[in-house]
Simulated assay, not measured.
Amino acid sequence: MEGREEDVRVGANKFSERQPIGTAAQSQDKDYKEPPPAPLFEAGELTSWSFYRAGIAEFVATFLFLYVTILTVMGVSQSSSRCSTVGIQGIAWAFGGMIFALVYCTAGISGHSIIPSTQNLLQNLILNGISLTRSRLAAGGHINPAVTFGLFLARKLSLTRALFYMVMQCLGAISGAGVVKGFQKSVYENNGGGANVVNAGYTKGDGLGAEIVGTFILVYTVFSATDAKRNARDSHVPLLAPLPIGFAVFLVHLATIPITGTGINPARSLGAAIIYNKKHAWDDQWIFWLGPFIGAALAAIYHQVVIRAIPFKSRH
């Protein structure tokens, strides 16, 4: 029996766990280096084609997002029977599924980037290697001013790029909703145009709270799914990042469609309101800007200060 116990001990030592899991994995630094914070203003971005290419990608992605999702909402709204349409669950899948697909397509295009000098670029490549590249690529495909705002607060992109993204996202949303109205104007106008409003039976405070919590869930998921340290430790994370983000959007929609129709995206709410352009669509518009921005700010603070504790790390 003693020999067998010895064999077990030797075997356990010989074939140790190759990849730590759980809290043990947290201590594995590997080749990770914390990416430097993005500058508040980077003049070099304004003369870079990649800067404008990223903005175009945000425009197109938000355009496609509004086009598919608003069409889905219209299909459900105009039906006299819920059994003949995809229903609320289908709407939630349309929003979550489109985010999954569009983040997957654009994450590497509209990812933030700092334009360094040749010397700094060489230094970054030598010191940070692949992990730094992954951290940048994983931060693209925002398709949402609240996500952009949260990443800006965490210094993941410059103010210049953040404002440019927000403008392009709003223009894309307006265009997407406009195309839907152009296809079926009467259906669009008779069924609310997909505009976000606080539904009957709920107060303005209920709507604001739903938007804050819903956006917190989304932006917190974005931070977790694109965390640079996780990317360095687990090579599969960047490939899987769009999945939890899309799934978070899906779940939030299931929970809050009955309350506000689910905004959690100021561009989506603004685009539908502008094209629909009825008074009640504007009455609650402030909720769909204030709520998402508060939720995004809270998620950024929670992830950076509590989860990552970055502000409290010693600098060497």
Rank of each mutant, 00 (worst) to 15 (best):
M1E: 10
G11F: 04
A12H: 14
A12G: 11
N13T: 08
K14R: 13
Q19E: 13
K30D: 10
K30G: 07
D31A: 09
Y32N: 04
P35Q: 08
P35D: 10
P36G: 05
L40I: 09
L40P: 02
E45M: 02
L46C: 10
S48N: 15
S50K: 15
I56R: 02
F59R: 01
F59M: 03
A61Y: 00
F63M: 10
Y67F: 13
T69V: 14
T69L: 06
Q78T: 12
S80P: 05
G87V: 11
F100V: 02
T106A: 11
G108V: 01
S110F: 03
S113P: 06
S113N: 14
P116H: 15
Q123H: 09
Q123L: 13
L125R: 09
I126M: 14
L127Q: 15
N128S: 15
N128L: 09
S135V: 07
A138M: 07
G140Q: 11
G140R: 13
G141Q: 04
H142M: 05
I143Q: 05
P145D: 01
P145Q: 02
F152R: 11
K156N: 05
L157A: 01
S158R: 00
L159S: 08
Y165R: 04
L171Q: 01
G176V: 02
K181V: 09
V187S: 10
E189F: 07
N190V: 03
G192R: 10
N199T: 03
N199L: 05
A200P: 00
D206S: 14
G207R: 01
E211D: 06
I212S: 08
V213W: 10
L218Q: 00
L218I: 02
D227P: 05
S235D: 08
S235N: 09
A241W: 02
T256A: 12
I257W: 00
I257M: 07
P258G: 06
A267I: 00
R268H: 11
A273Q: 06
K279E: 13
Q285P: 06
F288K: 05
G291F: 01
F293V: 11
I294L: 13
L298V: 07
Y302S: 15
V306Y: 07
A309S: 12
K313T: 12
R315F: 09
